[in-house]
C-alpha cells in the first residue's frame, strides 16, 4: 500500500490545485491512467477546492490499496448542516470571492459522486466533514 497526504488551507487560492497535481503525478508514475485517472483528477480537484472554499482547512489523502484507490478529504469544520442539500446539483453557499473565481455552480459534490465508484460523506456541524471516495483500479464506473 502507498499513501500520501497533503494539508490544504482555507482560502489559499494561490496553492489551490497543488495537492491534486501531486496526487495525479504520483498515479501517473504508478502507471494508472485512462478513465480511472481522468475520474480521480476531476474528483480530487473538486474536493480540494471545497476544502479551500468552504472548510476551515483540512487534509487530502490518497492511498492505493489492492484493487482500489482511495481519496479521502477530512476537515476541521464548519461541517455541512444539510448533506442532502449539499449533494444537490446547483446548491451552493460559495461566497463572492469564490464566485468571482468561477466556483459556486454547486456541481462539485455531484461531480465527485458521479466519478467515484464508491462515495461516502459524513459531516457533523462544528466538527467537520469527511468525504471518502473509492475508485476501482482497472475498470469500474463508465468503462
Amino acid at each position: 500500500m502507498i499513501a500520501e497526504s497533503f494539508s490544504v488551507e482555507k482560502g489559499d487560492y494561490l496553492r489551490a490545485g497543488e495537492a491534486s497535481t501531486k496526487m495525479k503525478n504520483m498515479l501517473k508514475k504508478l502507471g494508472i491512467g485512462g478513465s480511472v485517472l481522468r475520474r480521480i483528477s476531476v474528483a480530487a480537484y473538486e474536493v480540494e477546492m471545497n476544502l479551500v472554499i468552504h472548510s476551515f482547512g483540512g487534509t487530502l489523502s490518497i492511498n492505493v490499496d489492492g484493487d482500489y484507490i482511495w481519496l479521502i478529504s477530512e476537515d476541521i469544520g464548519p461541517g455541512i448542516p444539510n448533506i442532502e442539500n449539499a449533494m444537490r446539483e446547483g446548491y451552493s453557499t460559495a461566497d463572492e470571492v469564490a464566485q468571482g473565481m468561477g466556483f459556486g455552480a454547486g456541481m462539485g459534490i455531484p461531480n465527485m459522486k458521479r466519478n467515484a465508484d464508491i462515495f461516502n460523506i459524513e459531516s457533523e456541524l462544528n466538527k467537520g466533514t469527511k468525504i471518502s471516495m473509492g475508485f476501482l483500479l482497472g475498470g469500474g464506473n463508465g468503462e
Binding site: M1, I2, K29, L30, G31, I32
Partner: peptide, 15 residues
C-alpha cells in the same frame, strides 16, 4: 514516467 509495468511493483518502488 511509469516506475514499472506492474502497478504492484511500481508501488514498491514508490515506497
Amino acid at each position: 514516467m511509469q516506475l514499472d509495468e506492474e502497478v504492484s511493483t511500481a508501488i514498491e518502488k514508490m515506497e
